[in-house]
């Protein structure tokens, strides 16, 4: 990268001048300018994310007596309580299982969507809007909408099932069908996101590559597996990590489902953290639970950096 040349301002204003003089004349040194420009971002990120996270670590040592909530001691009891907490362990495994299902599903649907959206048709704007809508909708509203559509008595999905001759399904009430409903809803919302990221990757693949391959006799399938997919790896990696991390934290959609009457079997880690901290106001234990969630995110991130993205130059 060629360094832009220094301004032709008089020497007195650059060499040996004080910081203030340089600032006023608009001729800061690169390193000074960098600090100035990056400072606000760093302040915000440290203040809103880093410092609170440190606080979470500290607060998890704050042990509240469950029988006498006003008694507060310091210690590691929260952690032993965590490992014995069945509700936490359920939420933990449930979150991982949901995460696996929704991430896989969103890619299985997202990739074909991206390929379709990449085609040149006259209706591209409609396709774009249809792809953007699920992404742009607030999660809490998506959850509420689908909770209504999955309603046992008056929901659309059951209506279609009945018209097709099948039995009604008590979607939200029974744990296993609630899981299916939840996973389908999340897949609906997130496959658009995956499709959009993959679309970017697709659009950066030069057309000449696949054309040349086809001239050499390759079929469409071969072009897809041998050329497209490998070149999509960076985009897939990006979509994968963002999707996985947000799947672990998922809160709005289970909350919406549970507000609409779904069984507690949908309680993910995110929901459990919120319940403990906001509804039960045991800040110490809530922080401990959220450390469990953070640990999970950390492990996933490390796995990602180690195995999926080792070619970071």
């Amino acid at each position: 990268m060629r360094q832009p040349e220094l301004s032709t301002a008089p020497r007195s204003q650059t060499r040996g001048a004080t910081f203030l003089a340089r600032f006023v004349s608009g001729n800061l040194r690169d390193s000074e300018l960098a600090i100035l420009l990056l400072a606000p971002s760093v302040v915000l990120l440290v203040g809103i994310m880093l410092y609170p996270m440190l606080n979470v670590f500290l607060m998890s040592l704050r042990v509240q007596n469950t029988l006498e909530p006003s008694m507060v001691t310091t210690g590691f009891e929260n952690f032993s309580r965590l490992l014995a907490d069945k509700r936490f362990l359920d939420a933990f495994t449930r979150t991982i299982w949901f995460g696996f299902l929704t991430v896989t599903g969103s890619f299985l649907i997202g990739l074909p969507l991206a390929l379709l959206a990449n085609l040149e048709t006259g209706w591209r704007w409609l396709v774009r809007v249809a792809l953007l809508l699920p992404w742009a909708m607030p999660q809490i509203i998506t959850g509420t909408m689908f909770a209504w559509m999955f309603n046992s008595q008056y929901g659309v999905f059951n209506d279609i099932l009945v018209r097709l001759g099948f039995e009604r399904i008590y979607w939200l009430i029974r744990p296993d069908s609630a899981t299916v409903a939840f996973v389908l809803t999340v897949i609906w919302k997130t496959s658009s996101f995956v499709a959009l990221i993959l679309l970017g990757g697709l659009q950066s693949i030069p057309l000449e590559l696949s054309e040349a391959a086809q001239v050499d006799g390759a079929t469409s399938t071969q072009v897809f597996w041998r050329i497209t997919l490998p070149l999509l790896r960076p985009a897939i990696a990006v979509a994968l990590i963002f999707r996985t991390l947000s799947a672990l934290q998922v809160f709005d959609i289970p909350y919406a489902f549970m507000s609409a009457g779904a069984s507690q079997s949908l309680e993910t880690l995110g929901v459990y953290v919120q319940k403990q901290t906001v509804e039960f106001t045991d800040f110490g234990y809530g922080s401990t639970v959220s450390l469990g969630l953070f640990a999970l995110s950390l492990v996933i991130t490390v796995i990602y950096l180690r195995f999926i993205r080792p070619e970071e130059s």
Partner: peptide
Amino acid sequence: ARLRLRYRRIISIIIVAASMFPIVSLIVPL
């Protein structure tokens, strides 16, 4: 994008890593 910085890589990683913090964990301290 413009300034040649030695620690540019680290800054990028910090910025991306920040988006990996589970927001629901930050509720109480925030």
